[in-house]
Computed example of a mutant assay.
Amino acid sequence: MSAVTARNTSAPRARIAFPRVLRSEWIKLWSVRSTWFTMGLAVFLMVAIGTIACFVFDPAGTTPAKAGTDGVSLATNGAMLAQLCLGVLGVLYSAGEYGNGMIRSSMSAVPRRTPVLRAKAVVFAAASVAVAGVTVLVTFLVGSVALKGTAFGLSLSDPGVLRTLLGTVVYLALVGVIGVAMGFLLRSVAGGVAVIAGVLFVIDSLTFILPASVADSVIPYLPGHAGRAMMALHGGGDLLSPAAGASVLTAWAVVALAAGAVRLSRSDV
């Protein structure tokens, strides 16, 4: 073996910088059509449902307004369906690599593995915050025009409005991050989507089988209810405070990511 060859084989492997992993994951996220389609669908649902809810709402109608109805809750009506879009996209973004075999290339480029999961979570959260932030703000401003002059009209300067809109954005981003984690944990698009749908919609509807004393202690800490606390302008009922709701949902996301990291580090790709 020559001296040059010996130096090459004994040289330490170059360290993969995390910013490079982030850049790679950002490119991968926006290079597939499913991202544009699903993000576009989330935007459409948010804008369409929120705008329609504001314009068709009749404060002077014969049916009394539901408790807790306000300009923010009307404008963010579409968040309930947009959250499913972002959760599903998060699953596609991570589990999709297992389906098409790209995960092998990703892990060959980043042998330590967990930086890939962290990069995907950061990239997806950033993209979700950017898209949801603009969408929520635009929808609220349009809805404010429809509700102007009524008791339900609000502006950005009103107490709690900015906090509620920000809570909606953070909630949508965290749901997407949980979807990313489920993709790594289950390695199946169908399985991840089923879990996301179940966590967001099905579990809440099954709590009626629990004793009232147990349900009252469990329901506020479910992801969907924690999210509603983040998006509520006025608390009450079984809702946590906005800060507590954000903490609970963040804990759900952290636990999901930790479980995904354990599966990723201990299992073959």
Rank of each mutant, 00 (worst) to 15 (best):
V138E: 04
A130I: 08
A127I: 14
V134L: 14
K148L: 09
A151S: 15
T135I: 09
G133A: 11
A146H: 01
L137R: 08
G149F: 12
L147I: 09
A126W: 01
V142A: 11
T139K: 09
A132M: 14
V131W: 00
L141T: 07
T150P: 05
L154D: 03
A127M: 11
T135V: 03
F140S: 06
A130Q: 03
L147T: 04
F152M: 14
V134P: 06
A132N: 08
V138H: 00
A132L: 13
V136W: 12
T135W: 06
G143R: 09
G153F: 06
V145M: 10
F140Q: 07
S144Y: 02
A146K: 01
L137Q: 04
A127N: 03
L141Q: 08
T150I: 12
G133Y: 00
G153N: 06
V136M: 05
G149C: 11
G143P: 04
G143I: 10
A151G: 15
V142H: 06
F152T: 05
V134I: 12
A126G: 13
V136F: 11
T150K: 10
K148W: 13
V129E: 07
T150A: 09
A146Q: 03
L154R: 09
G149H: 06
A146L: 02
T139L: 12
S155P: 00
A146F: 04
F152D: 06
V136D: 11
G149A: 04
G143L: 12
A151I: 03
L154K: 02
V138G: 00
G149L: 09
S128N: 07
A151M: 13
